[in-house]
């Protein structure tokens, strides 16, 4: 099969036709840059913190954000921030790739760990927290990751956190919230997270919002980056995993399903946000740590307290 733009051999078949290596790379990069421009994800005054893990999505978003700034002659300061959750035989591999990549690309890398900041690695903390709360590892990890990313990014002066969430991640999150009737949380999704700007929250933006996970992996392969296959050992325990499988089954049978979910959601998002603005959630500083919370004590501190009491 040949590229629909030239006669070269195709590397991917998309809904609108097949593309060769060169045309796919241009198509992919233009899509990311168009997303940044259309949704004004980056402003000239922003100091950018790129949330990174060393996996394919974060390396791609790190590289393309830097490339975007160069292309549009922007002088924004940019640095990478990695969270080490302490997951054995997984995170050390991706962090090694990340260190190597940042050295090559001349990007400043900051790291922060669950162990140093919260007292325990995820591997150690999970059984204790799960025993009393039945919380799954992905839930605990998500709460602590978001907490540390926001705190560190703000402490380091960032005005935006750039994440590597791709179209698959977002479609999964939309369906998860739909199935659980979490309309409040759904209203915070989208290329720019959150409904209102909050002093304690650094806004999160998603340049890979319209990129399929398959496209991101292909991009890293065609760029020749040495991204090792690494799968979190806890990933099969979460609700998201079942939704992911379901959506991939649908996508295989009905191409364009995931894009359809995103398009429908974006059409509804203004309504969800309007509804949320009528009864906004009260955000106040956590009594324990001073970070943003919608209760007296934030979820990160509640989990930390469980470990300390063991």
């Amino acid at each position: 099969m040949n590229c629909h733009k030239c006669d070269a051999k195709a590397v991917i078949s998309l809904q609108h036709g097949s593309l060769c290596k060169s045309h796919f790379l241009s198509y992919f990069e233009e899509k990311v840059f168009r997303t940044i421009n259309k949704f004004q994800l980056i402003e000239r005054k922003d100091k950018l913190c790129i949330a990174t893990s060393g996996g394919k999505d974060s390396l791609t978003v790190l590289y393309l954000t830097k490339k975007y700034l160069e292309k549009y002659n922007c002088n924004n300061e940019l640095f990478a921030l990695a969270v080490d959750e302490g997951i054995a035989k997984y995170r050390e591999k991706t962090l090694r790739d990340l260190h190597h990549f940042c050295r090559e690309q001349n990007i400043r890398l900051e790291t922060v760990s669950f162990n140093e900041e919260l007292g325990k690695n995820l591997d150690v903390a999970y059984p204790f927290i799960n025993k009393g709360t039945k919380k799954k590892p992905c839930h605990i990890c998500g709460v602590w990751r978001r907490y540390l990313l926001n705190k560190q990014a703000r402490d380091l002066g960032a005005t935006k956190v750039v994440t590597g969430h791709n179209l698959d991640d977002e479609a999964q999150a939309i369906v998860m919230n739909l199935f659980k009737a979490n309309t409040k949380i759904a209203g915070r999704l989208g290329p720019i997270s959150g409904i209102e700007e909050q002093e304690l929250f650094v806004q999160r933006v998603k340049p890979l919002y319209f990129c399929l996970e398959k496209e991101v992996r292909l991009y890293t392969i065609l760029k020749g980056w040495q991204v090792q296959f690494a799968e979190c050992p806890y990933s099969h325990t979460g609700y998201r995993h079942d939704i992911q499988e379901m959506l991939n089954e649908f996508e295989q049978k009905y191409k364009g399903t995931k894009q359809g979910i995103i398009n429908s959601f974006l059409a509804m998002l203004p309504l969800l946000r309007e509804e949320e603005r009528k009864q906004p959630e009260e955000i106040k500083p956590c009594q324990e740590c001073g970070e943003a919370a919608n209760q007296e004590v934030c979820n990160a501190c509640k989990m930390k307290a469980i470990i300390q009491s063991c």
């Binding site: 099969m1 051999k9 590397v11 991917i12 398959k214 392969i221 295989q252």
Partner: peptide
């Protein structure tokens, strides 16, 4: 599942066809 893998031969990625 076609959506979960890419296939390569001699370091060249192949389309499904």
């Amino acid at each position: 599942n076609l959506e979960t893998v890419l296939v390569a031969r001699n370091n060249e990625v192949l389309t499904e066809e």
